[in-house]
Write a protein that binds this DNA or RNA. Structure first.
Lengths: 329, 329
DNA sequence: ACAAGATCTGGAACCGCTTCCAGCAATCGT
DNA sequence: ACGATTGCTGGAAGCGGTTCCAGATCTTGT
């Protein structure tokens, strides 16, 4: 059995209180008491039981990290960074995967809420109101989603889209398609809006084949529609759709970027591996995960943040092989 | 503030004990008492505080799930399945990422060990003895690793390799390379052994360029060595190495599978997306994650398992575009 | 050297729940 | 109808910490 605070107290010849204090507020105990306690702690290899501590302090030293789908290549990078940062704060991470289902999501939050000090909700699928009601009970940081004034870390989707469109325009493209993701996705709405204003600003002719599921199949399914619309370039809601387009174009003998250019969004690992490699908008995922934990940690210690509680991270266009000059008509 | 057991007891007009019993062992309380408690529970929306329960029962309802690198595409699928299964058991999952470092790994296990009921260690990097010592304190299930008689779920690496070599032999390949992964990896040792016996059995000439890191760079770095050895096919320790080989071959104008065939191992998502798509040995990852939780749950309830505590899951060769008939000399 | 103040310490209550134990009521056998 | 089981229930003692409070000890100023 592991040593308890009582064992330490007995060995050191002091009271439990003193042991507790030595650990929590060393400057409140006399040097020699502290020394004896520390010796006893070392000798017994004592480490406070976090569960017990949690019961009396109401703080568990654990945070909940919720993702819609950990198997989606967009998320592991964020989780990893968050994980690493949490460890630096001595926080453990309770991972929850909602399987893209809003009901499961709120359910998970509800059941986990008493075991954690706070939540990081990564691209939550639940509605604004549900999210707001959750945040009443426990500190929450939103990642890749913004709801009112709630603390959040987002990427500069609009600027990413702007860069992508400017890149295409510079290559001589005049008519481009935007393949939208799920209608209910906050990020999709952001990107869609940016595409519309961006296209208008650059004088681009915009074709919108509608919303598809944000995976390979979605891209494959919409590819022929895009082709029939005689665009010379297509911007995809995300890389998976972009890869689906690429795959279907290849299959139909449409050359990329000779006949049509493709730009994705997210810079998932696979995008660099296909050929031609996918031009895409990259987001600092590790920074996002890290900043999410930083923000939550500040919230937990109700520290004020100089930068405010709503962070926007820059995006960057990565030009690879899938974009090239527009073909001559 | 959330309702406590006291509130429920007061409202129902019974003692705390009865409330507790109603929840834990309903058949030990009289029907009408139970009914009153249940009504009070419903009315207050009471849910027992797991922390408090954990303190008195010594069980937290949480399991630790440790991976070497969640950003490695091999793991998210397993984590996801494990996650889903845990939820069915009412278990929460504490995720830990060791960053491929054995010391971090044992450290994580040690610090988390008092917050969890048990661990699932996914492809642990620590040495056998460290692992054994951990398992003394807390129930542990090993995934993709076997250490003595410890409970474990592994894939049938040997059979996967056998299938891959048989496939190549059938295509007329006579001289093949095996690009080994990290020397310290248990899985690598398994696969290497299987390659040697398999090649001998099939009368294949085996070239071993040595160990490389199990990522894209590893594959790229070793590609020229493989080529210089005039093999017609190469089996890679894993898909990332396989993709690295493919990429370098492409760059050098070596056609795949015209000049040389490539077989990977793991069937990560990207392998299906590249062209030619990578022939690879697939492992039932979701089954693995699920079985890991099942096994741990049995251990936690010290149930006896009919199947024993060491499970071996089948592997399956997925033939794609990267393998073809051996070129005529 | 002594009172006032500051510093340190131990006792005890408490966090929310489980579980042992004793007691009481209802049931049973004869 | 009576004692012996059996079935339920409430009280209370933990689980392992933290923290408030009162009292003991040590400084300090004079």
């Amino acid at each position: 059995m592991a040593a308890t605070i009582k064992d330490v107290a007995r060995l050191a010849g002091v009271s439990q209180s003193s042991v507790s204090r030595t650990l929590a507020a060393p400057d409140q105990v006399r040097a020699d008491t502290r020394a004896r306690v520390e010796r006893a702690v070392a000798q017994l290899g004592y480490e406070p039981n976090r569960i017990a501590r949690g019961l009396s302090t109401g703080r568990t030293g654990t945070i909940g990290f919720l993702v819609p789908d950990i198997a989606n290549p967009f998320f592991p990078g964020i989780v990893k960074a968050a994980q690493r940062r949490s460890r630096e704060f001595g926080l453990a991470v309770l991972l929850a995967d909602s399987d893209e289902d809003p009901a499961t999501e709120t359910d998970l939050i509800r059941t986990l809420t008493k075991q954690v000090d706070g939540f990081v909700l990564c691209a939550p699928r639940a509605g604004d109101d549900d999210l707001r009601s959750v945040c009443g009970d426990v500190p929450v940081v939103l990642l890749n989603r913004r709801v009112g004034q709630l603390p959040s870390i987002i990427f500069d989707n609009a600027d990413g889209i702007r860069q992508a469109l400017a890149h295409l325009a510079a290559l001589g493209h005049r008519r481009v398609a935007y393949v939208a993701g799920p209608r209910t996705s906050w990020v999709n709405r952001e990107r869609l809006r940016a595409v519309r204003t961006g296209a208008a600003g650059l004088g681009l002719d915009l074709f919108e084949p509608g919303n598809v599921s944000p995976d390979l199949e979605g891209g494959v399914a919409v590819a022929d529609l895009v082709l029939a619309a005689s665009v010379t370039a297509v911007v995809a809601y995300n890389d998976m759709i972009g890869l689906g387009l690429l795959s279907r174009f290849n299959a139909r003998g449409v050359t990329v970027p000779g006949d049509v250019s493709i730009v994705g969004f997210d810079d998932i690992p696979a995008s660099a591996l296909v050929s031609p490699a996918l031009t895409t908008v990259s987001q600092p995922k590790d920074q996002c995960g890290r900043a999410g934990i930083d923000l939550l940690a500040d919230l937990l210690n109700d520290r004020d943040r100089p930068g405010g509680t709503r962070v926007c991270l820059p995006t960057r266009l990565i030009v690879r092989g899938s974009t090239g000059p527009a073909p001559r008509p």
